[in-house]
Amino acid sequence: MFQLVLSGLALGCVYSLVALGYHLTFITSRTLNFAQGSAMMLGAVITLILVVDFNWPTLPATLVSILLLGVFGLALERFAVRPFVRRGSMAWVMSTLAVGIIVENVAQLIFGKSPRGLPNELAQDPVMVGGAGIYPLELLIPVVVLAIAVAARLFYGSTMLGRALRATAFDREASLAVGINVDWMIGLSYAASSMLAAVGGVLIGPLIGVSSHMGFLIGLKAFAVAIVGGLEHPLGILIAALAYGVVENLIGGHFGSSAKEIFGFGLVILVLFLRPAGLFGRTRLRRI
């Protein structure tokens, strides 16, 4: 039982990283980056290619991969989101999805069709925590998530750029009026969302294996927890993600792994039925 909770927490942290990406782009631009799952996969695939095929040490490979995903996010926003949002169209839903699918298939062509293992010393020998075994990497995952959360808080609170981002999220028109480059802020939020997903991919890769199709289901689950937690509530998303990881593991433990998705997504629907704005969201008053 405790064993399942522990593994579930690590998985939940990864969901939260990908899910926070949905949050970031939503607050700045009211758009969602549906290529998040693919960005996660790309982060893991690039790291694996650098580490295994080019013999890079893990840390620089990880950093390069995350930076590249930042560039990917900028490009995605510039070419697949901005043109549509400008015209007031919802086509960004389709275009981000399409980019995700294209990326997945290109990765399959380059990376190959079979899954591969991403070696990591932290995922070799388990340590015992309270009678349950866990890989050190699974313990590192929550630490990384916490560090990112603290860094984000500091960034938002005490840098010009962070404040500008917050202002954009708060009121787009007013931000434009005071001279904030809103386009650039939205681009940045896309870069940050892709980078978060990449971090998730690099962390989960050594535990479950890397393949060109690894991002789909995790991207979808992350979207579910983003909705359940409330798209505008980072803390809510974090809690929802951890809860989803744990609950899903416990369900798998008792009813078999085929029941996981049935109950997991079923629960999502139930929560949304009871609280349409998510667990922590407040229904917005609309002035008419």
Binding site: Q3, L4, S7, G8, L11, L207, I208, G209, L217, N249, G252, G253, H254, G256, S257, S258, K260
Partner: peptide, 16 residues
């Protein structure tokens, strides 16, 4: 007797 769902990654219960 256990099954593993393809695409799933967590098989601790089965191994337990």
């Amino acid at each position: 007797v256990d099954k593993m769902k393809v695409g799933d990654s967590e098989f601790t219960p089965q191994m337990l």
